[in-house]
Design a protein around this nucleic acid. Sequence first.
DNA 1: CGGCGTTATGTTTGCTCGGGAATAACGCTG
DNA 2: CAGCGTTATTCCCGAGCAAACATAACGCCG
Lengths: 119, 119
Amino acid sequence: MKDLLPDTTSYRVNGRLWIEGPTDRFLGIGRLELLQHIKVQGSISKAAQAMSMSYKRAWELVSSMNAQAREPLVSTQTGGQRGGGAVLTPTGEQALAEFEAMQARFRAFMEQETARLLA
Amino acid sequence: MKDLLPDTTSYRVNGRLWIEGPTDRFLGIGRLELLQHIKVQGSISKAAQAMSMSYKRAWELVSSMNAQAREPLVSTQTGGQRGGGAVLTPTGEQALAEFEAMQARFRAFMEQETARLLA
DNA sequence: CGGCGTTATGTTTGCTCGGGAATAACGCTG
DNA sequence: CAGCGTTATTCCCGAGCAAACATAACGCCG
Protein backbone atom coordinates (compact mmCIF):
# COMPACT_ATOMS: atom_id res chain seq x y z
CA MET A 1 0.00 0.00 0.00
CA LYS A 2 2.81 2.40 0.91
CA ASP A 3 4.15 2.36 -2.64
CA LEU A 4 0.95 3.85 -4.01
CA LEU A 5 0.74 6.68 -1.47
CA PRO A 6 2.59 9.95 -2.12
CA ASP A 7 3.74 10.80 1.40
CA THR A 8 3.64 7.61 3.38
CA THR A 9 4.07 9.14 6.84
CA SER A 10 1.04 11.42 6.65
CA TYR A 11 -1.50 8.66 6.06
CA ARG A 12 -3.05 6.63 8.85
CA VAL A 13 -5.86 4.23 9.65
CA ASN A 14 -8.69 5.74 11.59
CA GLY A 15 -12.18 4.61 12.52
CA ARG A 16 -15.17 4.58 14.84
CA LEU A 17 -16.44 1.76 16.98
CA TRP A 18 -19.75 1.44 18.80
CA ILE A 19 -22.19 -0.96 20.40
CA GLU A 20 -25.59 -1.00 18.77
CA GLY A 21 -28.91 -2.58 19.69
CA PRO A 22 -31.91 -3.53 17.59
CA THR A 23 -33.07 0.07 17.17
CA ASP A 24 -30.46 2.63 18.22
CA ARG A 25 -26.81 3.04 18.89
CA PHE A 26 -26.09 2.22 22.51
CA LEU A 27 -22.50 3.32 23.21
CA GLY A 28 -19.94 5.09 21.05
CA ILE A 29 -17.00 7.39 21.54
CA GLY A 30 -19.24 10.47 21.87
CA ARG A 31 -21.43 8.90 24.51
CA LEU A 32 -18.35 7.61 26.30
CA GLU A 33 -16.86 11.09 26.54
CA LEU A 34 -20.19 12.41 27.73
CA LEU A 35 -20.25 9.84 30.54
CA GLN A 36 -16.69 10.79 31.47
CA HIS A 37 -17.62 14.45 31.69
CA ILE A 38 -20.77 13.73 33.70
CA LYS A 39 -18.67 11.73 36.15
CA VAL A 40 -16.33 14.67 36.62
CA GLN A 41 -18.80 17.54 36.49
CA GLY A 42 -21.75 15.98 38.30
CA SER A 43 -24.24 17.53 35.90
CA ILE A 44 -25.47 17.07 32.35
CA SER A 45 -25.46 20.77 31.58
CA LYS A 46 -21.89 21.28 32.83
CA ALA A 47 -20.75 18.21 30.91
CA ALA A 48 -22.40 19.48 27.75
CA GLN A 49 -20.80 22.88 28.20
CA ALA A 50 -17.37 21.33 28.68
CA MET A 51 -17.76 19.44 25.39
CA SER A 52 -19.36 22.44 23.65
CA MET A 53 -22.37 20.27 23.00
CA SER A 54 -25.91 21.58 23.41
CA TYR A 55 -27.68 20.53 26.59
CA LYS A 56 -30.52 19.17 24.51
CA ARG A 57 -28.28 16.78 22.62
CA ALA A 58 -26.50 15.67 25.78
CA TRP A 59 -29.81 14.99 27.49
CA GLU A 60 -31.04 13.03 24.47
CA LEU A 61 -27.94 10.85 24.54
CA VAL A 62 -28.33 10.16 28.24
CA SER A 63 -32.00 9.40 27.73
CA SER A 64 -31.18 6.97 24.91
CA MET A 65 -28.55 5.15 26.97
CA ASN A 66 -30.79 4.90 30.03
CA ALA A 67 -33.68 3.61 27.95
CA GLN A 68 -31.61 0.84 26.38
CA ALA A 69 -29.77 -0.54 29.39
CA ARG A 70 -31.40 -2.87 31.86
CA GLU A 71 -30.78 -0.23 34.53
CA PRO A 72 -29.99 3.49 33.99
CA LEU A 73 -26.35 4.47 33.49
CA VAL A 74 -26.96 7.99 34.76
CA SER A 75 -29.08 9.01 37.72
CA THR A 76 -30.48 12.55 37.65
CA GLN A 77 -32.07 14.79 40.23
CA THR A 78 -34.07 17.96 39.63
CA GLY A 79 -33.95 20.69 42.25
CA GLY A 80 -32.02 20.61 45.49
CA GLN A 81 -28.66 21.70 46.77
CA ARG A 82 -27.01 22.79 43.56
CA GLY A 83 -30.23 22.93 41.55
CA GLY A 84 -29.97 19.25 40.78
CA GLY A 85 -27.37 17.14 39.04
CA ALA A 86 -26.44 13.86 37.48
CA VAL A 87 -24.15 11.05 38.61
CA LEU A 88 -23.11 7.72 37.14
CA THR A 89 -24.81 4.68 38.65
CA PRO A 90 -22.69 1.59 39.40
CA THR A 91 -24.06 0.25 36.13
CA GLY A 92 -22.85 3.42 34.43
CA GLU A 93 -19.41 3.08 35.99
CA GLN A 94 -19.17 -0.48 34.75
CA ALA A 95 -20.27 0.42 31.22
CA LEU A 96 -17.76 3.28 31.22
CA ALA A 97 -14.88 1.05 32.27
CA GLU A 98 -15.67 -1.76 29.87
CA PHE A 99 -16.17 0.46 26.87
CA GLU A 100 -13.00 2.39 27.68
CA ALA A 101 -11.17 -0.93 27.53
CA MET A 102 -12.82 -1.79 24.21
CA GLN A 103 -11.78 1.58 22.83
CA ALA A 104 -8.22 0.98 23.97
CA ARG A 105 -8.13 -2.35 22.11
CA PHE A 106 -9.58 -0.60 19.05
CA ARG A 107 -6.89 2.09 19.18
CA ALA A 108 -4.26 -0.66 19.35
CA PHE A 109 -5.84 -2.36 16.33
CA MET A 110 -5.77 0.88 14.33
CA GLU A 111 -2.15 1.53 15.23
CA GLN A 112 -1.23 -1.97 14.14
CA GLU A 113 -3.03 -1.44 10.82
CA THR A 114 -1.35 1.93 10.36
CA ALA A 115 2.01 0.26 10.91
CA ARG A 116 1.13 -2.42 8.37
CA LEU A 117 0.16 0.34 5.95
CA LEU A 118 3.68 1.71 5.89
CA ALA A 119 5.46 -1.65 5.99
CA MET B 1 -21.26 -5.87 29.94
CA LYS B 2 -23.86 -8.51 29.12
CA ASP B 3 -25.42 -8.24 32.60
CA LEU B 4 -26.37 -4.63 31.99
CA LEU B 5 -27.99 -5.21 28.61
CA PRO B 6 -31.64 -6.27 28.40
CA ASP B 7 -31.50 -8.73 25.51
CA THR B 8 -27.93 -9.79 25.13
CA THR B 9 -28.22 -11.48 21.76
CA SER B 10 -29.56 -8.45 19.91
CA TYR B 11 -26.59 -6.18 20.71
CA ARG B 12 -23.40 -6.17 18.71
CA VAL B 13 -20.21 -4.23 18.10
CA ASN B 14 -20.15 -2.35 14.83
CA GLY B 15 -17.89 0.27 13.33
CA ARG B 16 -16.25 1.95 10.38
CA LEU B 17 -12.63 1.92 9.34
CA TRP B 18 -10.84 4.08 6.81
CA ILE B 19 -7.47 5.35 5.63
CA GLU B 20 -7.09 9.10 5.83
CA GLY B 21 -4.49 11.53 4.59
CA PRO B 22 -3.56 15.03 5.68
CA THR B 23 -6.65 16.61 4.12
CA ASP B 24 -9.26 14.07 3.05
CA ARG B 25 -10.38 10.55 3.59
CA PHE B 26 -8.59 8.28 1.15
CA LEU B 27 -10.27 4.86 1.37
CA GLY B 28 -13.30 3.66 3.31
CA ILE B 29 -15.97 1.04 2.96
CA GLY B 30 -18.05 3.22 0.61
CA ARG B 31 -15.15 3.92 -1.71
CA LEU B 32 -14.18 0.27 -1.59
CA GLU B 33 -17.62 -0.83 -2.75
CA LEU B 34 -17.53 1.81 -5.46
CA LEU B 35 -14.23 0.41 -6.75
CA GLN B 36 -15.69 -3.09 -6.70
CA HIS B 37 -18.67 -1.97 -8.76
CA ILE B 38 -16.52 -0.05 -11.23
CA LYS B 39 -14.41 -3.15 -11.72
CA VAL B 40 -17.52 -5.18 -12.55
CA GLN B 41 -19.50 -2.60 -14.50
CA GLY B 42 -16.72 -0.86 -16.41
CA SER B 43 -18.27 2.57 -15.87
CA ILE B 44 -18.76 5.11 -13.10
CA SER B 45 -22.37 5.79 -14.02
CA LYS B 46 -23.33 2.10 -14.06
CA ALA B 47 -21.53 1.57 -10.76
CA ALA B 48 -23.33 4.51 -9.20
CA GLN B 49 -26.65 3.23 -10.49
CA ALA B 50 -25.99 -0.24 -9.05
CA MET B 51 -25.31 1.31 -5.62
CA SER B 52 -28.19 3.78 -5.96
CA MET B 53 -25.68 6.56 -5.55
CA SER B 54 -25.79 9.73 -7.62
CA TYR B 55 -23.31 9.85 -10.48
CA LYS B 56 -21.94 13.14 -9.23
CA ARG B 57 -21.09 11.71 -5.82
CA ALA B 58 -19.49 8.64 -7.36
CA TRP B 59 -17.41 10.82 -9.64
CA GLU B 60 -16.33 13.01 -6.74
CA LEU B 61 -15.17 9.96 -4.78
CA VAL B 62 -13.19 8.68 -7.76
CA SER B 63 -11.70 12.12 -8.26
CA SER B 64 -10.70 12.32 -4.59
CA MET B 65 -9.03 8.90 -4.66
CA ASN B 66 -7.19 9.62 -7.88
CA ALA B 67 -5.97 12.96 -6.57
CA GLN B 68 -4.55 11.48 -3.38
CA ALA B 69 -2.78 8.41 -4.70
CA ARG B 70 0.61 8.62 -6.36
CA GLU B 71 -1.02 7.20 -9.49
CA PRO B 72 -4.76 7.11 -10.33
CA LEU B 73 -6.78 4.13 -9.09
CA VAL B 74 -9.35 4.52 -11.85
CA SER B 75 -8.71 5.29 -15.49
CA THR B 76 -11.55 6.97 -17.38
CA GLN B 77 -12.30 7.59 -21.03
CA THR B 78 -14.85 9.99 -22.54
CA GLY B 79 -16.48 9.11 -25.83
CA GLY B 80 -15.79 6.03 -27.92
CA GLN B 81 -17.23 2.59 -28.34
CA ARG B 82 -19.71 2.52 -25.48
CA GLY B 83 -19.69 6.23 -24.88
CA GLY B 84 -16.68 5.94 -22.64
CA GLY B 85 -16.04 4.08 -19.41
CA ALA B 86 -13.85 3.51 -16.42
CA VAL B 87 -11.53 0.68 -15.39
CA LEU B 88 -9.29 0.02 -12.41
CA THR B 89 -5.60 0.58 -12.99
CA PRO B 90 -3.10 -1.95 -11.58
CA THR B 91 -2.66 0.52 -8.73
CA GLY B 92 -6.41 0.46 -8.21
CA GLU B 93 -6.49 -3.33 -8.20
CA GLN B 94 -3.76 -3.38 -5.58
CA ALA B 95 -5.50 -0.81 -3.37
CA LEU B 96 -8.73 -2.77 -3.70
CA ALA B 97 -7.13 -6.04 -2.65
CA GLU B 98 -5.20 -4.59 0.27
CA PHE B 99 -8.12 -2.66 1.68
CA GLU B 100 -10.41 -5.67 1.30
CA ALA B 101 -7.95 -7.58 3.47
CA MET B 102 -7.88 -4.79 6.03
CA GLN B 103 -11.68 -4.78 6.12
CA ALA B 104 -11.69 -8.53 6.67
CA ARG B 105 -9.37 -8.14 9.66
CA PHE B 106 -11.61 -5.38 10.98
CA ARG B 107 -14.69 -7.58 10.67
CA ALA B 108 -12.86 -10.28 12.61
CA PHE B 109 -11.97 -7.75 15.30
CA MET B 110 -15.58 -6.65 15.62
CA GLU B 111 -16.82 -10.22 15.84
CA GLN B 112 -14.29 -10.91 18.56
CA GLU B 113 -15.45 -7.86 20.50
CA THR B 114 -19.08 -8.81 20.02
CA ALA B 115 -18.27 -12.26 21.44
CA ARG B 116 -16.51 -10.66 24.40
CA LEU B 117 -19.58 -8.47 24.91
CA LEU B 118 -21.75 -11.48 25.58
CA ALA B 119 -19.18 -13.45 27.55
C1' DC C 1 -22.79 13.77 -39.72
C1' DG C 2 -26.28 13.13 -36.27
C1' DG C 3 -27.18 10.16 -32.29
C1' DC C 4 -25.83 7.80 -28.30
C1' DG C 5 -23.79 6.92 -23.73
C1' DT C 6 -20.37 8.31 -21.14
C1' DT C 7 -17.25 11.61 -18.43
C1' DA C 8 -16.97 16.11 -16.38
C1' DT C 9 -18.75 20.14 -13.88
C1' DG C 10 -21.68 23.95 -12.26
C1' DT C 11 -26.19 25.29 -10.24
C1' DT C 12 -30.29 24.70 -7.73
C1' DT C 13 -33.33 22.34 -4.82
C1' DG C 14 -34.70 19.84 -0.90
C1' DC C 15 -34.34 17.50 3.37
C1' DT C 16 -32.59 16.18 7.69
C1' DC C 17 -30.25 16.93 11.84
C1' DG C 18 -28.79 19.56 15.48
C1' DG C 19 -28.80 24.35 17.84
C1' DG C 20 -31.09 27.64 20.20
C1' DA C 21 -34.92 29.76 22.41
C1' DA C 22 -38.81 29.22 25.35
C1' DT C 23 -41.07 27.09 29.20
C1' DA C 24 -42.22 24.30 33.16
C1' DA C 25 -41.09 21.78 37.33
C1' DC C 26 -38.27 20.77 41.09
C1' DG C 27 -36.23 21.35 45.68
C1' DC C 28 -32.53 23.46 48.54
C1' DT C 29 -31.12 27.94 50.56
C1' DG C 30 -30.91 32.40 52.25
C1' DC D 1 -41.28 32.44 50.00
C1' DA D 2 -38.46 34.29 46.30
C1' DG D 3 -34.31 32.98 43.87
C1' DC D 4 -31.23 29.96 41.79
C1' DG D 5 -29.37 26.24 38.91
C1' DT D 6 -30.58 22.18 37.30
C1' DT D 7 -33.46 18.60 34.71
C1' DA D 8 -37.00 17.90 31.22
C1' DT D 9 -39.49 18.95 26.90
C1' DT D 10 -41.46 21.35 22.97
C1' DC D 11 -41.06 24.21 18.88
C1' DC D 12 -38.81 26.74 15.20
C1' DC D 13 -35.12 27.74 12.26
C1' DG D 14 -30.78 27.63 9.71
C1' DA D 15 -26.66 25.36 8.06
C1' DG D 16 -24.82 21.81 5.68
C1' DC D 17 -24.90 18.22 2.61
C1' DA D 18 -26.40 15.23 -0.87
C1' DA D 19 -29.74 14.59 -4.67
C1' DA D 20 -31.48 16.33 -8.74
C1' DC D 21 -31.12 18.99 -12.70
C1' DA D 22 -28.75 21.18 -16.49
C1' DT D 23 -25.14 21.44 -19.83
C1' DA D 24 -20.90 20.72 -22.34
C1' DA D 25 -17.46 17.79 -24.51
C1' DC D 26 -15.93 13.62 -26.32
C1' DG D 27 -15.42 9.93 -29.75
C1' DC D 28 -17.26 5.70 -31.94
C1' DC D 29 -20.96 3.99 -35.10
C1' DG D 30 -24.68 3.48 -38.18
